[in-house]
């Protein structure tokens, strides 16, 4: 296993891990028990959950490749929350069931919007090149 990350990233990893656990559990239940109700919303939630897991693992490791993977996952998340957030406001009918990214994550205290921004800022600030 790679060296554990240090400093503020350790806190970020915990918040990400909690989100990853919650999102994965929730979407697993949704997919297995009532997929037909809102397939798009539930598949999006599952995708978001997978990205949270990837981001958690990548942030928890300190090497270069992990940083690249983390950056990619975080950019994807930020795009997801912005696109799905906007779409859920413009076309509410397309999202009969809320996803973690609906209305910019307002159901989760906007944490889904804040997390990738904080994460990307941290990755940039601690970049070995800077």
């Amino acid at each position: 296993m790679a060296e554990r990350s240090t400093g503020g990233a350790r806190l970020l990893v915990v918040v990400y891990a909690i989100f990853a656990i919650a999102a994965t559990a929730r979407s697993a239940v949704q997919l297995f028990t009532r997929f037909d109700e809102a397939p798009v919303a539930y598949l999006l939630s599952a995708l978001a959950a997978v990205v949270y897991i990837i981001a958690t693992v990548a942030l928890s490791r300190a090497d270069r490749t992990s940083r690249r993977v983390a950056t990619a996952a975080l950019v994807f998340e930020l795009s997801g929350v912005l696109v799905v957030g906007t779409a859920s406001l413009l076309f509410p009918d397309a999202f009969p069931r809320a996803t973690v990214w609906s209305t910019y994550g307002s159901g989760y205290l906007f944490i889904p919007l804040a997390l990738p921004i904080i994460g990307l800022w941290w990755l940039r600030r601690t970049s070995p090149k800077a």
Binding site: V14, A17, I21, A25, V29
Partner: peptide, 18 residues
């Protein structure tokens, strides 16, 4: 929602252990 209920209960100890 029994599945949700059990899911939350079983996963919650994972957070403080982790």
């Amino acid at each position: 929602a029994r599945a949700e209920f059990v899911g939350y209960l079983v996963l919650s100890p994972v957070i403080p252990i982790g």
